[in-house]
């Protein structure tokens, strides 16, 4: 990412406003955190169920919680873009940010494959999920933990706050 582009980006009126308005910045943080809770939360519930917790919950009905996931995925993405707009260089020059995005994409790829297979199979409503599905559920939990951790670490691992005055 060329530095002049980042400088231009952070000097746009919108980026300046996102940075300097306390309410704009903090409401984005608040929405990002609450939506994170629900995005990861729906995955925690579904993955735990696949791993054998609450075995009498019909597995295929877990999809009924996914409307909550989609809504909050939109909120988490939009608020994430707003936070990125406030300090573009802070995240975009930090490898941890790309690791976080990769973890989220990988976790959502698992969700997609589970939604296409296991979660549509009424026969697993009562029977334990196959071994492969359990491994995917465990991997999904690990990826979400990695995404949450790397998200939190963005506040500690950045190389610079802004491209225009690097410190």
């Amino acid at each position: 990412m060329p530095m002049d582009y980042l400088v231009w980006l952070e000097e746009t009126p919108f980026s300046t406003w996102m940075r300097e308005s306390g309410p704009a910045f903090f409401s984005s943080l608040v929405f990002h955190s609450v939506a994170m809770g629900f995005v990861v939360g729906v995955h925690v519930a579904t993955d735990l169920r696949i791993l054998g917790v609450a075995p009498r919950v019909p597995l295929s009905l877990m999809r009924r919680f996914f409307s909550v996931l989609w809504v909050n995925l939109v909120v988490v993405s939009l608020s994430g873009v707003l936070l990125l707009a406030a300090y573009p260089a802070k995240a975009l020059t930090n490898p941890v940010f790309y690791f976080k995005l990769a973890a989220v994409v990988a976790a959502l790829a698992i969700t997609r494959s589970l939604l296409r297979g296991l979660l549509r199979e009424p026969r697993y409503d009562d029977d334990p999920a196959p071994r492969k599905a359990r491994l995917l559920a465990a991997l999904s939990l690990a990826l979400w933990a990695a995404a949450v951790t790397s998200g939190r670490l963005l506040a500690y691992t950045h190389n610079m706050m802004m491209a225009s005055h690097q410190y």
């Binding site: 955190s33 994170m36 809770g37 629900f38 990861v40 939360g41 729906v42 995955h43 925690v44 519930a45 735990l48 919680f65 979400w144 933990a145 949450v148 951790t149 998200g151 939190r152 670490l153 506040a155 500690y156």
Partner: peptide
């Protein structure tokens, strides 16, 4: 120290929403 414990705090939050919240 601080970032590690914060990360655990955020994971606990996700588990709480994912179980009690659901």
């Amino acid at each position: 120290g601080w970032p590690t414990v914060e990360s655990l705090h955020f994971m606990g939050l996700c588990v709480l929403i994912g179980t009690v919240g659901m």
